[in-house]
Nucleic acid binder design. Structure first.
Length: 491
RNA sequence: CGGGGAGUAGUUCAGUUGGCUAGAACGCUGCGUUUGGGACGCAGAGGCCGCAGGUUCAAGUCCUGUCUCCCCGACCA
């Protein structure tokens, strides 16, 4: 797996994700698969994502709220294509009570507690939120309505993958209601751009974004837009979506408003979200054979100070080290001192590298004598001796450099793995080789899309801005095409 | 749901044509020596060999059934 970074295979995450997640051990005979425990270090990354993204969401005038986990089954019958998209992956609550079994050694479902209407564990919250919105919206003065929720959701997928497709996952889902289509489309694009910006600034990830094809769009949407990242192994990963819902749901859930002209109208809606899948993208984008590599702007621990001592000089070294930590904390947050005396320094170096801490500072007797400390970068492995007086500001600079370097590496990876191809043969050979994105003409027909998928395993990712209106020929059927689309094998 | 593979210690796995008290490495516990790139020595704890049935003097090993997990597909964020 060298040079491909971390992939979501069991053998990889058991080795590298040791601090991030582990498979949940559920009931012996349970058919629950793909439920993961997010461990404290992994959850700290998620909290950093939450904190920073939540600020951007609020800056966009969106307010947080929380809606029920359980959705009456009947809500799902209201929007035809929505139910069709989710019906096959819903967990359903049918009873609300257990009783002791006859043998007296366990419990069983109490048949007397059957629910009159079954409840669906939310696979997404459009239905329950929009039912509520229908009571919140009655006038143009109530619009735009912009609501976001941070929640867990359940999708009973046939096949799961750690982080990328788990049965239960955490996400953020934003839902807005507007009086005009122009305004709702603007919201869709703004939130899409927000995700792109977030990925760039915090996750140090360069991505493509654009409209999804008809077959790839969200169940119930008029249009879906996605953010696509390129992993080190040549597979694409979609980690954010933004949907133009048109008036489909407004119609289905009876959301109406009286406009300034006195007319009763249907509003226009959007929804958009990113999930813990984003952490998978983050990990797979930057990490190497030595473990995680985390961008400083999202790392739970940005700097770790490893004192190197023996029984004789322990006290002295530790006191200098904690002085240094104190001065570092004035300029850098998330600094940690590793005082453990039961593992060797070499063990610590390795462990913090696996955890992806961006900067490690080593302080031992040698350094104290020369008023220096050894500063090591996780991204390049470079070591540098830096004096105490300038340490804090230097480290702060190095953290910015690491953030920049990771972004530029991600950009290089994206560019170098994007191939513009002339014909289908070339497309096949590119995808059979190192993979990556293929940029090529596509006539827009679902038949061609399916054939391309059949022969190459690649699907349409999205229509990026550069590709819009770029006339050419469809890579498969050879007919005239209006746009150049992005294809890739994807997770 | 189709194709392939695997279930033995906390983890990763050995375990021969059925044969004695089921093993290793790592991890864990204790003591000592160590500590600038995953330390070492000694002592120890830890097992319903996935589950149920069968064949046999004897089953981790053979047979039948069953459950679960992993990989590759189909489906999807």
């Amino acid at each position: 797996m060298s040079n491909k970074g971390i992939t979501p295979r069991e053998e990889d995450y058991s080795q590298w994700y040791f601090d991030i997640l582990e498979r949940a051990e559920l009931a012996e005979n349970s058919s629950v698969r793909g439920c993961m425990v997010i461990k404290p270090y992994g959850y700290a990354i998620w909290e950093n994502i939450q904190k920073n993204l939540d600020k951007m969401i609020k800056d966009a005038g969106v307010k947080n709220a929380y809606f029920p986990l359980f959705i009456p089954k009947s809500f799902f019958s209201k929007e035809a294509s929505h139910v069709k998209g989710f019906a096959k992956e819903c967990a359903i609550v049918t009873h609300y009570r257990l009783k002791e079994n006859e043998a007296g050694d366990g419990v069983e479902v109490d048949e007397n507690s059957k629910l009159e209407e079954e409840l669906v564990v939310r696979p997404t919250s459009e239905t329950i939120m929009y039912d509520t919105f229908s009571r919140w919206v009655s006038s143009w003065r109530d619009l735009p309505l912009k609501i976001n929720q941070w929640a867990n959701i359940v999708r009973w997928e046939r096949r799961t993958r750690p982080f990328l497709r788990t049965t239960e996952f955490l996400w953020q889902e934003g839902h807005t209601v507007h009086s005009t289509h122009e305004e709702s489309v603007q919201e869709v694009m703004d939130r899409l751009e927000m995700y792109v910006q977030f990925a760039r600034d915090f996750l140090a990830m360069e991505t493509y974004h654009g409209r999804k094809s008809e077959s790839e769009k969200f169940a119930g949407a008029v249009n879906t837009y996605g953010v696509e990242a390129m992993m080190q192994d040549g597979k694409a990963l979609q980690f954010g979506t933004s949907h133009d819902l048109g008036q489909n749901f407004a119609k289905a859930f009876g959301i109406q408003f009286t406009d300034t002209d006195g007319e009763t109208k249907l509003p226009w809606q959007t929804s958009w979200g990113v999930s813990t899948r984003m952490m998978g993208a983050l990990i797979m984008t930057h990490s190497d054979d030595n473990g995680l590599v985390l961008p400083p702007n999202i790392a739970p621990i940005k700097v770790v100070v490893v004192p190197i001592f023996n029984n004789e000089n322990k006290e002295k070294v530790l006191s200098v080290a904690s002085e240094i930590v104190k001065s570092l904390k004035k300029e850098v947050d998330a600094v940690e001192l590793d005082e453990r005396d039961f593992v060797s320094p070499g063990f610590k170096f390795n462990e913090w590298e696996k955890k992806g801490v961006p900067v490690r500072i080593e302080i031992g007797e040698r350094d104290i004598e020369s008023n220096n400390s050894v500063v090591v970068r996780r991204d390049t492995g470079e070591k540098e001796s830096i004096g105490y007086e300038i340490l804090a500001s230097k480290v702060s600079d190095i953290l910015s450099q690491i953030q920049e370097n990771l972004l530029s590496k991600s950009k290089d990876n994206l560019v170098s793995k994007t191939h513009r191809v002339a014909d289908f043969e070339e497309m096949k050979s590119v995808l059979k080789g190192d993979g990556g994105f293929v940029l090529t003409g596509w006539c827009g027909s679902e038949d061609c899309e399916n054939s391309i998928k059949y022969y190459t395993k690649a699907t349409t990712m999205c229509l990026i801005k550069d590709g819009e209106g770029k006339k050419g020929r469809c890579v498969y059927c050879g007919k005239e095409s209006n746009d150049e689309w992005l294809f890739a094998k994807a997770y």
